[in-house]
Structures are given as structure tokens and as C-alpha cells.
Amino acid sequence: MAVTREALLKYLSKKTRADLSKIDDTTELFSSGMVDSFAMVDLLMWLEKQTGARVNPDDVSIDNLDSIERILAYAASRKR
């Protein structure tokens, strides 16, 4: 299943206390502390469920996970 921007934002709003109305697609989520480690692990598990593909160890990187834009791009690359 494709991960849409809307679904991702809905998920993040449920799982974090970040004010998502104040961010854009390039805002740093993890580096800025807006999304903490616990929420990021939740997000990885959610991505695995949504895409149906396991996250490879080398994929757990800032390049893939630090913004809405990067997460969506990574999810699209993992879609089965």
C-alpha cells in the first residue's frame, strides 16, 4: 500500500505532540527533536506495515527519515 502524505501526517499527529501545522515537508523531524526515538521506532514499524516490506538496517538513516519529504520518498521506494 502506498504511503500518502495525508496518512503520514495523520499518523504523526496521533503519535507525537508536534504541532504539524507549523512544519513543511522539509522540516527536520528527528534532528530537531520534534519526533523522539520512541515515536521514530513506532513510525518504522508503521512503515513496514504500510509498505509490506521490512526496513533494511542500512535504510535506518537521517537521509531516509528526517522529514516528511524523505519519509515519503523512502516509503515509495519500498512499496511492494
Binding site: S37, I62, L65
Partner: peptide
């Protein structure tokens, strides 16, 4: 199984924090 996966991803995330 999911609990184990969560643990694995937590470790990978720690590595990511270290790399960062």
C-alpha cells in the same frame, strides 16, 4: 515477533543517532 522487531529497530535507531 513484533516486540522483537521493535527492539531491533530501536537498536538500529540508536546506531543512526550515533552516526548523526
Amino acid at each position: 515477533e513484533e516486540a522483537r522487531r521493535r527492539y531491533e529497530l530501536g537498536l538500529l535507531l540508536n546506531r543512526m543517532k550515533q552516526d548523526k
